[in-house]
């Protein structure tokens, strides 16, 4: 393969930075990752700023024979375009040697936004209900019967007259 025919591929890097890195130094550490990508000819597409997350299980790191347990980390991600050979070099020379990265993943992806954007508006409306005026009309007819007091007195008089 010649240099001109280099195939650019979109990659995503997801990373956990140690929780011991304070918020002020976090931007500097992310800047180091960015500069490592740019140094290898990578062009950025999208980025998710790191935020502290609780890990689903504790991760252990061995420092000189002593294991340190981490239950939280700063999770961030970045999507970029890079040549395949450079991506391999990035993983082996930059990412794997970075002692402040608790864990990382680098994989091929697509240029488009891959996060799910759920259509909540449609799902909230279960079905439309049509109403009819049948019940109201029936109710009005009943009310009309109650109002006619003259008719009521007339029927009472008739009943009293029948008894006499």
């Amino acid at each position: 393969m010649t240099e001109d025919s280099k195939e650019m591929q979109v990659y995503e890097l997801g990373y956990h930075i140690l929780p011991t890195v304070v918020a002020d130094d976090l931007e500097g550490e992310v800047g180091k990752l960015r500069s490592a990508i740019e140094k290898r000819g990578g062009s950025f597409i999208a980025e998710g700023t790191p935020e502290i997350v609780s890990l689903a299980y504790p991760m252990f790191v061995n420092y000189g024979g002593k294991q340190t347990k981490y239950e939280r980390a700063h999770f961030g991600w970045m999507k970029f375009e890079m040549d395949r050979e450079q991506a391999v070099a990035l993983r082996e020379e930059d990412l794997s040697r970075n002692s402040l990265l608790l864990r990382y993943t680098l994989f091929k992806t697509t240029r488009e936004e891959t996060r799910a954007q759920l259509q909540t508006e449609q799902s909230t409306i279960l079905r439309e209900v049509k109403t009819t005026g049948i019940l109201e009309k029936k109710h009005e007819a009943e009310e009309g019967g109650e109002v006619s007091e003259e008719a009521l007195e007339k029927t009472i008089d008739e009943l009293v007259g029948e008894e006499k």
């Binding site: 997801g14 998710g48 991600w77 697509t110 488009e112 936004e113 891959t114 996060r115 799910a116 954007q117 759920l118 259509q119 799902s123």
Partner: peptide, 15 residues
């Protein structure tokens, strides 16, 4: 059903 084109590892609630 939900018009989701890609499955992302970061969408934990969906997964």
């Amino acid at each position: 059903q939900h018009g989701i084109k890609y499955v992302d590892y970061k969408d934990v609630d969906v997964l």
